[in-house]
């Protein structure tokens, strides 16, 4: 890839400058050397401090890999309150939990709800976040205050956000009163079909500052010269935004989209605190369903199977998406490709 090569050149050149013996050209061009000549590696390959991965890696293994493996093992057991005590020796039932999860549980419905609500929330937060970032890009009086205010939803704990919204959405609560004042009978927010939209709305409120933050970081990376150049070329604001600025935002926003989606899909606190358990059927999203199966019905095996299925369901589009936006290519965020 061209960007990679140029990066290598730059890094290598810097390192070479300190070691006057080598010429930049010798370092940059060639593929890692032949068998005989002592190969000169780029900095990124040389002395890679792999040992630094050990603390994080060990933690990842204990906190993520081991539980994941245990979870997969659990999903093949008939593990419930009756067998919990000696859970290692509870009856092995193979794929029965998976069959039950897919055929006779609301898992697929829950997946559909999770994904659609996450996408909807994302579709609204993206333009909101970008607009807010662009609006606060140029300095004006009181900008710092506005920027701080924008971050409030992001720094509030999910639990607090959900509790406040739940209070406002009570029947005859402040939202109903406000809408009633302009003659709108809104109906129930915390029960019934409208709950889905309540969840989307609260999620939007809570998560747009995240998009805003990443969009802002993208805007900061636009060089001053670029603004000048486009001004010299006489680009008007929309054209400048569309063709000059947005391409810079592609990387950060792709990342924001990805993290945001995962965050929405995994969000347990918000629906749990807003609607309680058992949740109305229209907001029985994946985390709620898994929770109820585990901790209300005590079907730990079935619940592990559900969690695993949802992991796979999310991993597939995630993988495709990662490939598409090449986020794994961490060397060049935000650069044009």
């Amino acid at each position: 890839m061209s960007t990679d090569a140029s990066n290598e050149v730059r890094l290598a050149a810097e390192s070479a400058a300190s070691r006057a013996a080598h010429s930049a050209a010798e370092v940059a061009g060639q593929e890692p050397g032949g068998p005989k000549s002592p190969r000169r590696k780029g900095l990124s390959e040389r002395n890679r401090p792999l040992w630094m991965l050990i603390p994080g890696g060990a933690l990842m293994i204990i906190i993520i890999v081991v539980p994941l493996l245990l979870g997969i093992y659990m999903s093949t057991l008939n593990l419930d309150q009756y067998t919990l005590r000696k859970w290692i020796s509870s009856p092995f039932i193979g794929v029965e939990n998976f069959v039950e999860a897919l055929t006779s549980s609301p898992l697929l419905h829950a997946t559909w709800l999770s994904v659609s609500y996450s996408l909807l929330a994302m579709a609204v937060t993206l333009p909101l976040g970008i607009a807010a970032a662009v609006a606060t890009q140029n300095a004006f009086k009181g900008r710092a205050v506005i920027r701080s205010i924008f971050l409030i939803p992001y720094v509030l704990p999910s639990f607090v956000v959900a509790t406040v919204w739940r209070t406002m959405f009570q029947p005859d609560g402040i939202v109903d009163k406000a809408l009633g004042a302009v003659g709108i009978e809104a109906g129930l927010w915390l029960n019934g079909p409208q709950t889905f939209w309540t969840l989307v709305l609260v999620q939007i409120w809570a998560s747009w500052p995240f998009i805003y933050l990443l969009a802002l970081s993208g805007l900061q990376s636009v060089d001053h010269e670029v603004h000048e150049a486009s001004a010299l070329d006489g680009a008007l604001w929309w054209n400048k935004l569309r063709y000059v600025i947005f391409p810079y935002l592609k990387g950060p926003l792709a990342l924001a989209f990805l993290i945001g989606m995962l965050h929405h899909i995994n969000n347990f606190t918000l629906p749990y605190v807003l609607f309680g358990v058992p949740a109305p059927a229209d907001v029985e999203v994946l985390p709620i369903l898994t929770y109820v199966t585990s901790f209300q019905s005590f079907r730990f095996g079935l619940s592990a199977a559900m969690a695993f299925v949802s992991l796979v369901l999310i991993a597939i589009p995630l993988f495709v998406y990662l490939r598409a936006v090449k986020l794994d290519d961490a060397e060049s965020p935000g650069a044009k490709k």
Binding site: N191, G192, P193, P278, P280, Q296, S297, F298
Partner: peptide, 20 residues
């Protein structure tokens, strides 16, 4: 009983929109 109780409660939860 936990499941039965949850089921009894769930009938009410899902009926609340109709109730309203």
């Amino acid at each position: 009983w936990g499941d039965i109780q949850l089921g009894l409660l769930n009938v009410t939860v899902q009926s609340v929109p109709d109730l309203a």
